[in-house]
Design a binder for these strands. Structure first.
Lengths: 175, 175
DNA sequence: GTCTATACTTCGATAGAC
DNA sequence: GTCTATCGAAGTATAGAC
């Protein structure tokens, strides 16, 4: 069985996300997206009639990936907290990329992107709250995850960040 | 004594930062900056010969503000940790605005902006480390601050975030 | 379903008047 | 020190051939 070729539709969304993540929204132009996906601009605009539709489709795909992620977190073998922290550092997964891309769009004052991110976070905090039975702890851990994520995507991440966090969480009997 | 008029130079930097923070880097065009500062584009380009110079000047101003902030943090009456956390939520200060603006630029892959932010963070972590005498705790608190900051600037902030953090830090005998 | 050609707009930057 | 006028490049989007 031959590996299924990634559709042009998906390759375009991949390219859009990659450009947003690695170079920022100013660099994520239709020209650049089309070039990275190795399609002409006209080809791109057949699949997505406007840049706005590209954003919309990206957020739809993110929501699908997000539902799967929350389910994985809930049943992770080493517990939801460890799973959450480990995946707060950019692991290079498609989901991470989609997440970071959405954050870039959200910062351009896009309410759809903000809403999508808020919904994802709602899923995570629900699992943390349920697992920990402690609202303050759940929210603080979510903030730590946000911090890890932010540092990682602004070129500020420390190599040992996770080690220090685990150290502190052990003192709180979380790990 | 009459209040000193803000110079055109400063008004332009203020406008640039405000646009970056409230609408993102794609919206922070020379046209938009000039309009917000109520100067013509030609007027803007007299003060800053290119967009790059505008960025450079903004980062210079940020570094000055940053040095003053670290000093304030070190001698804050309610302690450096409380000072740091409270100012991690966007308080609307000029320093906050400059900081967020620099982060937007850093995300566009600008190494000067990343370096400026890294230096600022170095100042904060030094004070936290010195005050707490605990590397893991210092770094974790910095991550929480980053999380507060990120949420606040992505339209995701929770009203009670600080309350929950204080609750957890009390359990760690930090507050 | 993808391409080329093209229209229109906005962006960053220069030149020169005042 | 600030303005208007203008340029070339790049941005989004449309039309129509293949």
């Amino acid at each position: 069985m031959v590996a299924t070729e990634r559709s042009t539709h998906d390759r375009l969304l991949d390219a859009f996300e990659t450009l947003l993540v690695t170079a920022g929204s100013r660099a994520a132009t239709l020209d650049a997206v089309a070039a990275m996906a190795e399609v002409s601009k006209g080809g791109l605009l057949y699949h997505f009639h406007s840049k706005d539709e590209l954003v919309e489709a990206m957020l739809t795909r993110l929501r699908e990936q997000g539902a799967a992620d929350a389910a994985k977190m809930r049943t992770a073998s080493n517990g939801p907290v460890e799973f959450y922290l480990a995946t707060s550092m950019n692991t290079g997964s498609a989901f991470d990329r989609a997440l970071i891309a959405a954050a870039r769009i959200a910062q351009e004052n896009d309410s759809r992107a903000s809403a999508a991110l808020a919904d994802l976070r709602e899923g995570w905090i629900a699992v943390l709250r349920e697992h920990l039975g402690d609202e303050s702890l759940a929210r603080t851990i979510q903030l730590i995850g946000d911090g890890l994520y932010f540092d990682d995507t602004t070129g500020l991440s420390e190599k040992n960040a996770l080690k220090h966090v685990r150290d502190v969480l052990r003192r709180l009997d979380v790990l």
